[in-house]
Amino acid sequence: MEFTDAFTHCFDKLGQKKIMALASSLHDHVTVRNVSCIIHEQRIFFKTDKHFRKTKQLLENPNVAICHWGVQIEGIAKNHGLVTDEDNRFFQALYDKYWRTSYTAYAHEETEILIEVIPKFIEVWDQDENNNGFQLLIDVDKQSVRINPYD
């Protein structure tokens, strides 16, 4: 499998929205929590209040991991500014579509910021059409893929 196919396979598995577990760390203290993600154009976004503990962790140490079922992504958290900024209108529309209750409650707060998780390494656990398990190891920077069978 080529890099582009593996990368696409990963994002096809995620779909357009997911509740994902986000792990972050500051001063060797690791925390994990669920975040409501929007997956758009093979990119992962979520919003958070700029005063939350996780946000402090992300801003001081942007190295994160995020996962849902068999897809785990190690990457860098990038702050795109306020959710209400003009450049982030795409996110507002998608968040309203997929997470309406949360959007209605919080999306317009002046403390809500948009975070993107930029993948560096992706691990996908999956099965082929014959139910044979395999693991895709995707190095995004090197644009390389390794497939490991695990059955």
Rank of each mutant, 00 (worst) to 15 (best):
E116A: 00
D96R: 15
N61P: 04
H27L: 06
I19H: 10
L58R: 03
T4A: 07
V140N: 02
T4D: 13
W69Y: 15
I115A: 04
S25P: 02
E86V: 07
T84G: 07
V140D: 00
R100G: 09
D28N: 13
Q127H: 09
N63C: 08
A93I: 14
D126H: 06
D96E: 13
H9T: 10
K50D: 06
I76C: 07
K18L: 07
H27C: 03
F52E: 13
T31Y: 13
E123G: 09
D141P: 04
N79K: 07
I38V: 04
H68E: 14
K142V: 09
A6V: 02
G75L: 00
K56T: 15
I118T: 02
W99L: 04
Q92W: 11
V64G: 01
Y106C: 04
D5C: 05
R33S: 10
E112W: 03
Q92A: 14
D128Q: 07
K17A: 14
E129T: 15
E74I: 11
I44Q: 02
E2Y: 09
R89G: 06
L94E: 05
Y98M: 01
S144F: 00
R33N: 01
G81H: 03
C10L: 11
I113G: 04
T55V: 02
E129Q: 14
V83S: 11
Y95K: 10
Q72S: 15
Y98S: 05
K120G: 03
I44Y: 03
D128V: 04
D5K: 14
I73R: 06
M20K: 01
D85L: 08
D49W: 12
E110Y: 07
N79S: 00
N34F: 11
F121C: 03
Y106R: 00
F46A: 00
H9V: 09
D96M: 12
I122Q: 06
Q57V: 05
F52I: 13
N88H: 05
D12M: 06
N63T: 07
M20N: 04
S24W: 10
S144A: 03
W99M: 08
T4Y: 12
Y95W: 06
E2C: 04
T104K: 14
W125T: 07
I147Q: 13
E129A: 15
L14C: 02
F3K: 07
K78P: 01
V64D: 01
T31N: 13
E109R: 14
Q42L: 06
F7L: 01
Q92T: 11
I19V: 13
